[in-house]
């Protein structure tokens, strides 16, 4: 396709002008309207979050609304020292440990499930339906079910037992869906070539499938970690006597009317941003290294 004849033909330029979003030349008026909507969306997405980060740096006189009163780290210190706000440090510790457990299990199980779903097998539609059901089930209902079940079995509810299971029932379907999207770009010819060259099933997985899918696996890990780290509804009735961080935040939204609440928001968001940055950085790094290897050979 060359551009020159297009430009010469008046009928074509008319058509170009009518095109939905011409790939070059003057932009239609819809572009400006949609760009404005997009900008509004992004501002509304980030604006409120930045408000609470700013407000968490007030001093002792600070309240829940603007204007800022002073500038200090008072509420961050308050957060970790005051008994009134509960066991924030412990909740942090538990939430991160739980999120790491969930991440590891989610990555391994999602990969295996996505490999299985590439072929049809007896009962596959049932497993798929269960997965979608688990994804859309109301979190609190599921949490109550797990709680009642543990009671009936005489088992105590704990964050590393019942809450882990309840969270997995939500992160795994999510992880498998993300793996589906990743797998759609996976060429099974590579796998077959490995097998033809005499690689065992385990070698094929370790040396071909996992390296090829690595960026996608990092994405699944990001989903696993953040969905667990912020999970609330399923954990509420299953965490047992020791709270996780979102449960701590939840009880603070109901009782605490000081910027300590915002300080906790700032701290937990910093952790989220670190995780997101590390994951996206890892994906870019893998792709770059791959690009270098491809160009050097």
């Amino acid at each position: 396709m060359s551009a020159a004849p297009d430009a010469l033909s008046p009928a074509k330029t008319g058509a170009r002008r009518r095109a939905l979003a011409p790939s070059k030349g003057r932009r239609p008026w819809t572009f400006y309207v949609l760009a404005a909507i997009f900008t509004f969306y992004v501002v509304a997405l980030y604006g409120p979050m930045f408000c609470i980060y700013v407000l968490s740096f007030q001093d002792l006189r600070g309240g829940l609304v603007f204007p800022m009163k002073g500038l200090s780290l008072h509420w961050f210190v308050d957060l970790f020292t005051q008994a009134r706000t509960g066991d924030v440090a412990g909740a942090f510790d538990r939430s991160i440990k739980l999120a790491i457990l969930v991440t590891v299990i989610t990555v391994v199980v999602s990969l295996m499930s996505a490999l299985a779903f590439r072929r049809r097998f007896p009962g596959d539609t049932i497993v798929f339906a269960l997965m979608i059901g688990s994804l859309v089930a109301p979190g609190l209902v599921l949490g109550i079910g797990v709680g009642l079940m543990f009671n009936a079995l005489g088992l105590p509810t704990t964050w590393w037992g019942s809450a882990l299971g309840a969270q997995l029932s939500w992160t795994l379907p999510f992880g498998v869906l993300v793996m589906f999207a990743v797998m759609s770009r996976f060429d099974s010819a590579w796998e077959e070539a490995a097998r033809d060259l005499g690689a065992s099933r385990w070698q094929t997985l370790r040396l071909v499938i996992v390296p090829v899918l690595a960026p996608g696996l990092v994405a699944v890990a990001l989903f696993g970690f953040t969905l667990s780290y912020d999970e609330f509804a399923r954990t509420l009735q299953t965490a047992g006597p020791q709270n996780t961080l979102p449960l701590e935040i939840w009880s603070m939204t109901l009782n605490v009317t000081s910027p300590a609440l915002y300080a906790l928001g700032t701290v937990t968001t910093i952790i989220s941003f670190l995780i997101i940055g590390a994951s996206l950085g890892a994906i870019v790094w893998i792709q770059k290294r791959r690009g270098r290897r491809a160009s050097s050979t």
């Binding site: 199980v109 295996m112 009962g123 596959d124 269960l130 109550i144 079910g145 079940m149 009936a152 498998v176």
Partner: peptide, 22 residues
Amino acid sequence: SWLYILPLVLVLVPFFVAPMLV
């Protein structure tokens, strides 16, 4: 295929099917 899907089923049965039945 079932060996690959088994871990998923082993999570969904006790933590989705069973609680909903409860």
